[in-house]
């Protein structure tokens, strides 16, 4: 059914993602699919990494750790953005298209008061891509 599952991860906030990571791993086992962990980073130094290369190393380490825990084949994809606060959805959609992903498993927050002004990323990504999207609430 699915060959490649993408899980967008925010290495700075992994706790709320725990459920999405598990769901992705279960689905990957079921469909014998590869899981691609996608992380978005800015070019400027951030709390996680001083350079995009360093971020790539961290994401690689993270995906290998996931592989060791769950056993599915993994890959890591670093998506570089000039302005992650504004571009996140756009660069994710581009990464989804470029990497030939057919299912995206995204952790998302519960609807909030200001959801209309600041919609969650999951909803926005879903309207801009052909891949199936599974939004996982914490």
């Amino acid at each position: 059914m699915y060959n490649k599952i993408m899980v967008p991860v925010d290495l700075a906030h992994l706790d709320p993602l725990a459920k999405a990571l598990e769901v992705a791993a279960d689905l990957a086992r079921h469909y014998r699919a590869e899981v691609c962990y996608a992380g978005v980073t800015a070019t400027a130094p951030s709390p996680l990494a001083h350079t995009p290369q360093e971020y790539q190393q961290k994401l690689d380490a993270f995906s290998k750790q996931q592989a060791a825990e769950h056993g599915q084949p993994v890959s890591a994809r670093v998506v570089i953005s000039h302005d992650p606060a504004a571009d996140l959805d756009a660069v994710l959609v581009k990464a989804i298209e470029e990497s030939g992903v057919d299912l995206v498993v995204m952790g998302t927050h519960l609807p909030r008061h200001l959801g209309i002004l600041m919609p969650s990323h999951g909803g926005k990504v879903a309207t801009h891509t052909d891949a199936s999207i599974l939004l996982v609430r914490p």
């Binding site: 290495l11 690689d60 380490a61 290998k64 592989a67 084949p73 993994v74 890959s75 670093v78 990497s99």
Partner: peptide
Amino acid sequence: MATHSNDPNAKERSQPSE
């Protein structure tokens, strides 16, 4: 953009990102 797939050394490098 480099994509890295699983490799046999995964265990060694799978330290939590500290």
